[in-house]
Amino acid sequence: MFDALSDKLNSVFKQLKGQGKLSEKNIADGLRAVRMALLEADVHYQVVKRLVADIKERALGQEVMGSLTPGQQVVKIVNESLTRLMGDTHEGLNLAGEKPVAVMLVGLQGSGKTTTAGKLAVLLRKEGKQPYLVPADIYRPAAIDQLKKVGGQLGVPVFDSTPEMNPVDICQQARVAAHKAGCDTLVLDTAGRLHIDEELMGELARIRTALKPTDILLVADAMTGQDAVNIAKSFDERLDIGGVVLSKMDGDARGGAALSIRSITGKPIKFIGVGEKLSDLEAFHPDRMASRILGMGDVLTMIEKA
């Protein structure tokens, strides 16, 4: 597939350089290559469709820069719009509120919530906060143990929940306990659930009402395919999320889900997970993500030099 794509791009970029304006005709191949690249990167079909139409509209009539072919210039325009679409600045956690505040992690099964809870504790501590971890997953076998071990490794206090307790009660009692322990920021680790699971989505809504978290982060796997739009839309509609953590970015996934999620919810991607270690959390960089999704590293370097 990648070979087919670069072959295609090469032929696109063989067109004559410079001179004249971008026209319907001289950008067609470039647009087609971009469309393929985005779909291959798992950007949602409808998002791609909208993007390609926007880009076409914006490109038409532009003067072709001296050193670029029309195809290259299209890629340049795409890269710029993707970067802009994903947000220009890095947004951190929202922690503004009466202490102790709560940050809530939600998402599908296995997306990386519990690990991210530990990573956020590391980050919070670095920022001079006193984090308090709250295991509110009573369903998955040993989920509570997992967060307790993570907290133990870090020396961060963890609420002593048990699977017999109710998740809403766990969170409420944890807030009292955190306050007593002199902690200012709760990190709520919730059970993985499907976005179509009415009962469990209702549970999240009840935790939200009870705790009023200052930030709710959807933890989504960077390898997610076309379903990312449905997942993000459902969690956002139900909970009005504050942002997204894109986990497992240390692999070779192109991460088109980032673009799908961003364009369907308008919510910022705040962090990326880049490994299993608790220090493996990084700020999100829209420009890096854009070129990763486009997967045209060589072309982009060439264009930047132009």
């Binding site: 798992d42 599908l108 796997d221 390898m223 997610t224 395919g225 379903d227 692999g251 192109r254």
Partner: peptide, 30 residues
């Protein structure tokens, strides 16, 4: 739930170990 990356996963695990079968999970979602 995984998109195109699953192909890369399958190829590389297969090269390393010789996969004899696949289980596809989480089909209860959308």
């Amino acid at each position: 739930t995984t998109g195109q990356n699953a192909l890369s996963q399958a190829k590389m695990f297969n090269e390393a170990l010789g996969i004899t079968g696949i289980a596809l999970t989480k089909l209860d979602g959308t």
